[in-house]
């Protein structure tokens, strides 16, 4: 018995030490692995280009994002097509406004929404799920039923009340997004944690008396990252589209400002009316950005996988 315990402790110490060492080399390792992944690197470049475009694209714009080109208003299908000469590089929207400027401005909003939403999900969702799963028992049960409730209450009323009580602002948009983005993530993190906490390295850490919070942060969370990162990239498009629902209720982005969700929605509505560019340009940026996020996510997953050597 005595021997057993001693052996266990020794084993655990070794293991902990090993983890420490690995912890330091892990990042460098991960970076190396990430930059060896071609798809991920290309995606990173594409994403950077999109960001650069959204920041500096405006400098060559001829029209602002709100000016109506009265000359083509009413004849968009005939006169509103993409055209270098009149300055509508991406064509015009149904109201004769410059799509190029609108896409740039929409890109800023939607990138921000997607990234902030995913970040909230990653931070709040992962920690919440890991704590619930690791603690288990009553705490787990109460914490997860809380998630069930939040997920089932009519979200629309929460948004409407936010609008009425606090008024509209970009910050409230993020509050609205943040309220729901982490829910599924917490479930996934908890499920994984339930399984992880029975693994030898966690049991060993427990045996050596490491504090629960430290175990969660040092041992559980790093092992969750693979699935968390992949799921976060799935969340990005969801958040970007949720924004247009929030804006529908009046809480989010208001005209004359716009977002990818709003632009795509408008373009999709008009797709059979000969103004396909209204769908194509916003969709193009939406798609290349999401592709980039996905491949970066996969690259990160592969790079961060603690088991991968």
């Amino acid at each position: 018995m005595m021997v057993d315990v001693q052996k266990m402790e020794q084993f655990a110490e070794n293991l902990a030490a090993q983890e420490e060492v690995k912890g330091r080399s892990l990042l460098a390792d991960a970076r190396r692995r990430f930059f060896h992944n071609k798809a991920a690197v290309v995606s990173l470049i594409v994403l950077s280009l999109v960001v650069v475009f959204s920041v500096f694209g405006r400098t060559i714009a001829v029209w602002s994002n709100e000016e109506i080109d009265w000359g083509i208003l009413g004849q968009i299908a005939e006169l509103g097509a993409p055209n270098i000469e009149n300055g509508h590089f991406f064509g015009a929207d149904q109201l004769g406004r410059d799509l190029y400027s609108r896409v740039i401005q929409g890109t800023q909003v939607s990138l921000m929404v997607g990234v902030v939403g995913a970040l909230i999900a990653v931070i709040v969702g992962t920690l919440y799920g890991a704590i619930a799963g690791y603690t288990g028992g009553k705490v787990d049960n109460v914490m997860m039923r809380f998630v069930d409730i939040i997920q089932s209450i009519p979200y629309m009323f929460v948004l409407i009340l936010l609008l009425v009580v606090f008024g509209r602002s970009l910050f409230m948009l993020f509050v609205g997004i943040g309220l729901i983005s982490w829910l599924d993530m917490s479930r996934i993190a908890r499920g994984q944690t339930l399984s992880l906490k029975n693994k030898e390295f966690v049991e060993a850490a427990i045996a050596t008396g490491v504090k629960p919070l430290t175990i969660i942060l040092r041992h559980i969370v790093p092992n969750l990252l693979g699935v968390v990162v992949v799921y976060a990239t799935l969340l990005v498009p969801q958040m970007i589209l949720t924004e247009s629902f929030i804006s529908f209720l009046g809480l989010g982005v208001q005209e004359p400002n716009t977002s990818w969700g709003a632009l795509i929605n408008e373009g999709a509505g008009n797709m059979q009316y000969g103004t396909l560019w209204q769908l194509v340009f916003p969709m193009f940026f939406f798609i290349i950005t999401l592709f980039s996020f996905f491949f970066i996510g996969d690259g990160l997953r592969d790079a961060l996988d603690p088991k991968e050597r």
Partner: peptide, 25 residues
Amino acid sequence: AIAMTQMWKQKLGVEVTLNNMEWKT
């Protein structure tokens, strides 16, 4: 609404903040 605000802005220099709301609100 957008056409109206642009007319005011271009002709009169009036600055309008547009707000949309869900019907019942």
